[in-house]
Design a protein around this nucleic acid. Structure first.
Lengths: 216, 216
DNA sequence: ATTTCATATAATTTCGAGATTTTGCTGTAT
DNA sequence: ATACAGCAAAATCTCGAAATTATATGAAAT
């Protein structure tokens, strides 16, 4: 039998990879069958996901997938820039060579995948791999910051960001610029230039601050 | 019968005002009686509180009140400075006169209470009033920032910060410096000097960045 | 045709019991 | 004395059904 934590992870990744339509109702009775557990168990999971912003909840009106909104994406991006820039600078200060090695490795992986995608429309599987590598790179940036609080907060924001972005749209034109952005962040971090690093983290996410990535 | 949202609020405020000992076990069966509902309902509430960091949860081992730790308080303070400084600057830019008036009002209230406390050891009731006013002032700083995401995040952090701080300790010696800090933040904000405002927000919280407020 | 109200249907919320797992205790062997 | 196994007690987790509340349907009145 699937323990509740598994259902939590499974539902979470489905929400983040846009396995549900935005605004769709999430009925515990329906999801119950898919996971082979009771409705109460699903309900608990949905409650937990609602407190971290991945599911919206209204009393007596059940659970829903949050709607997409340009404002929300802009706000989430803003917070990501704030936390990621701060966390990366902290990692630079206290991460040492071990962190630099980890970051270089994460970038190498991501870079490899992105150059494969470059130009063509990738398969579902490639998209999933890219998502994992992109997440890994951005998590590695802040992994040595020394603040569990920052990392947990960033995790919440990143998940909501992904949910808003709908990578499933397959608009991978941005990949080529992404390659340059990620390289620029890596170079700045390795050089130890804190101001430059902050700038490059900001530049990488800046296109989400205008609403253009949501078709505005 | 108390709806679940009431139990959530009630438990939350009890956790924040240190109505439970740090590290204490939170058994659903016990809390059930206090709120006159079933254990399952309490369990759901505890789950929700765990996702926002006010309750710690371990699989098959139940719920606990998070332990106090200097590191945690330092991390929470760091994040508060980051978000509160940013949010206040955003409020300065887009809040207008209406926001300035609200902030002045909130400060006036807080200032009044703090000058009454000054020197003496206050009663439970006064502490509760002060807590409310202090929360109100800091929320007002960021209320006009325009980002629901920032406000929600800050709310989570503020709650955890309060839980760590244990105001119940009644060490109100800091009140006199607090009065000056709050006034300095207000003045800086009203003057429109963004850099100065960031500095004053930082200064106000700086004493929590050393661990001294946890007896180190 | 639109609104209002009563009814029927469906969804949500609460509950307490049964199944599972952990925890504490006791006796035995090293 | 310490370590370990087995047993008992207590706590946690899961479940499905009952109670409550929202939503949809349709009839009557304006």
């Amino acid at each position: 039998m699937a323990p509740e934590s598994d259902i939590y992870q499974s539902l979470k990744s489905k929400l983040i990879s846009n396995g549900f339509a935005h605004g769709a109702k999430l009925r515990a009775e329906v999801l119950r069958e898919e996971y082979g557990c009771s409705a109460s168990t699903v309900r608990e999971v949905l409650f937990r996901l609602s407190t971290v912003g991945l599911v919206s909840f209204q009393e007596q009106r059940g659970f829903r997938v949050p709607d997409r909104s340009p404002e929300k994406l802009i706000e989430l991006t803003h917070m990501r820039v704030l936390l990621e820039a701060e966390g990366t600078v902290m990692s630079i200060r206290r991460g040492g060579v071990a962190w630099e090695a980890k970051l270089t490795a994460a970038h190498h992986q991501l870079s490899h995948i992105e150059s494969r995608i470059h130009g063509q429309t990738p398969s579902d599987e490639i998209v999933a791999i890219w998502s994992g590598a992109e997440k890994e790179f951005h998590e590695t940036l802040i992994v040595a910051c020394g603040s569990e609080t920052l990392k947990k907060l960033h995790g919440q924001l990143y998940a909501q960001f992904r949910q808003q972005l709908m990578v499933a749209d397959r608009d991978f034109d941005f990949i080529s610029t992404n390659i340059q952005h990620h390289a620029a962040i890596l170079d700045a971090a390795l050089s130890g230039d804190e101001a430059l690093t902050r700038q490059k983290v900001h530049d990488h996410l800046a296109r989400h601050l205008t609403g253009e990535t949501l078709g505005l």
